[in-house]
Amino acid sequence: MTLLSQQISGFIENSSWIRKMFEAGIAMKKQYGADAVCDFSLGNPDVPAPAQVGDILHELADSAQEPFAFGYMPNGGFPWARQIIADLVAKEQGVDVSADDCLISCGAAGAMNAFFRAVTEPGDEVVGVAPYFVEYGFYTSNHQVSFKAAMSKPDTFELDVDAIAAAMTPKTRAVIINSPNNPTGTVYGRQEIEALAALLDAKSREYGRPVFLVSDEPYRFLAFDGVEVPSVLPLYDYAVVLSSFSKNLSLAGERVGYVCLSPRMPDRGRLMAGLMLTNRILGFVNPPVIGQHLLKAALHAQVDAGIYEKRRNVMARVLRDAGYDFLMPKGAFYFFPKAPGGDDVAFCQRLMEEKILAVPGSGFGGPGHFRLTFCVGEDVIERAAEGFRRARG
């Protein structure tokens, strides 16, 4: 087997459980019919985008023949679009942010890859909090950087700062947090983040180079029951916020996101220049033209979060009636129940026999659990109730 074949085989063997179950769902729907399968595998928002999205698309169609309507731009996006992002982040984070602190990229995934390419060297390490979004490991390995998981606190999924400290070494270049969290639905509290910031500040001094705090925030808009999603930029000089508009504007396929640097970060202009370069040389070149115009029209609108809250309550009732052990999600659109019997892969197989698609927690570094997304209709959740009962036994 050639080296290329070995690399490809490795990627296939370690491919995302999310995608495996999503593709299994496609096959099952062909076999049994879409209405017979309850697919809770992929966090693909089904709530329609705000009306402003359709309006601006009509306007763009009318202007499509203008010179350079869809031409190149600065690698970080149109200056006016970067200013829009700066205004948004300033409001959310409670700090003064300028357009020069923000770069728009091809989704939060593109922004994260550009960031790691700019700040890491082969052999560096990045620490993430488990359970975690599985793609983080691939994003770091793209740049020959190791991903290390530090477990959150059992049962509550709160940050375990001691576990993060134990995972860090002088090779650690960044720590990633994701709140509201995919897959657990937890929201890290302000005191937890302050404790993490204090740890990273101490480790940065010890290592003689900054350890970045990367906050991945695509679900910031979706917190329930009045729960606050704390801001990270005011709490740590080397904090970085990444996000996208896949969830709050239902634009997952448009691939538009951003990275914003803390205005307190020393020499941040140099880092931003590096991000401009890496955004280009990784092949993104510049963010989508249409996506930036959509932001201009719809940024201050968003999908109806109340729809997700109703679905959360329906799924909680269905799971509770079927006898599952779970934490009520504080944000995002996922449940992460315990797998009856403890073997999450085997239990997800039992669910498949009931034509229910879920993702094993092992795929997120959280074995013994399984993930359910509730970005599906209430009718789908209700229809799955009997299958959940039978699978549990």
Rank of each mutant, 00 (worst) to 15 (best):
F347N: 08
D267A: 14
V303E: 05
V256A: 02
L242V: 01
H293D: 03
F336Y: 15
M265W: 03
A239G: 15
P360Y: 00
G366W: 01
L261S: 05
D344H: 11
G283N: 03
M328K: 10
V314L: 15
F245S: 05
L261H: 06
R270G: 11
F335R: 08
R268Q: 10
R270Y: 02
D343E: 04
P340K: 08
V229M: 01
P266D: 10
V289D: 06
R317Y: 02
A301E: 15
M328N: 09
P230N: 11
R220T: 11
A252C: 02
S362Y: 01
Q349C: 08
Y236I: 00
G342R: 12
A297E: 10
V345N: 06
G274V: 02
D325N: 12
I290E: 09
P340R: 06
G269V: 03
G323V: 04
R280M: 02
D343C: 13
N313A: 15
G253V: 00
E309V: 07
L357N: 07
F245V: 02
M315S: 07
V241G: 13
F245R: 00
K296S: 10
L242H: 02
E309K: 12
P234F: 05
P340C: 11
R270D: 06
F364D: 03
P360S: 11
Y334W: 10
L242T: 08
Y219C: 13
V227Y: 08
R255F: 12
R312E: 02
G257K: 03
E354I: 08
F224K: 05
F224H: 14
L235G: 09
P337D: 01
K296C: 03
L242I: 10
G283T: 04
L295S: 01
G306L: 00
G306Y: 00
D225S: 14
K310H: 13
A252N: 09
L319K: 07
P329N: 09
E353N: 13
